[in-house]
């Protein structure tokens, strides 16, 4: 067991499954015997707002919040959100980014601009960034909701416990509540795990 605190930040937009992914990581860490805290800032997340979930685990966790510059891992479900939260990552950290772009209405109305090349901006920081199109993989597997499991698969080789443990937790969770989805989630996890090894830019726009 690691004797220091691991800080993981999961970010995205309301409705994308950020909180479910974070919950899965937190439960897995708890099962591994760690003390865990998980906190969300989800103002009015349901309605298209920003969601960020902090997960901290280790021998003993006090504050639930990850300080700026202290995250070990950043999981971005949307590329501009990954960019928004990048300063929370430590210089030696890893960013795992879904290349999906979602522009809010105020952008499409022309009041604000969406960055042209967010992946490029992420890369320019010199931080280890992995970016891939999780939606495309999910579509190939036939279910858009798999993005969640794909992202978890992608990050699974950067955790202080074996990727297999996270996978088993996810798949068994489905087997208990939605058995029909267990197999396809196992596939999604593996597909994500493969994609997570590819460094940006790939399919990045």
């Amino acid at each position: 067991m690691l004797d220091r605190i691991t800080n993981i930040l999961v970010v995205g937009i309301g409705g994308q499954g950020v909180m479910t992914a974070a919950e899965m990581l937190a439960r897995t860490a708890l099962n591994q015997g760690y003390d865990v805290k998980k906190t969300e800032v989800a103002g009015m997340a349901q309605r298209g707002g920003v969601v960020s979930s902090h997960i901290r685990f280790g021998p003993k966790v006090y504050s639930p919040q990850i300080d700026a510059g202290d995250a070990d891992l950043l999981i971005g479900f949307e590329v501009a959100e990954a960019l928004r939260w990048l300063p929370h990552l430590r210089p030696t950290g890893v960013a795992m980014v879904n290349t999906l772009r979602i522009a809010p209405p105020i952008v499409s109305a022309g009041l604000f601009n969406y960055p042209d090349d967010p992946i490029g901006e992420l890369m320019a920081t010199g931080i280890e960034v992995h970016a891939f199109d999780a939606g495309a993989i999910a579509e190939e597997l036939g279910n858009a909701k798999l993005v969640n499991t794909i992202m978890l698969g992608a990050i699974s080789d950067h955790l202080p416990f074996p990727a297999e443990i996270l996978k088993i937790n996810i798949v068994e969770g489905f087997r208990a509540y939605k058995p029909k989805l267990a197999e396809v989630n196992a596939q999604a996890f593996d597909a994500g795990r493969n994609a997570g090894h590819i460094k940006a830019p790939l399919g990045a726009r």
């Binding site: 309301g14 309605r47 298209g48 700026a68 510059g69 604000f112």
Partner: peptide
């Protein structure tokens, strides 16, 4: 303060569904 500066980004206010 060792933090890197935040990217200049659009806000994402909540909207109606």
């Amino acid at each position: 303060t060792a933090t890197r500066s935040q990217a200049e980004l659009f806000p994402r206010p909540p909207t109606m569904c």
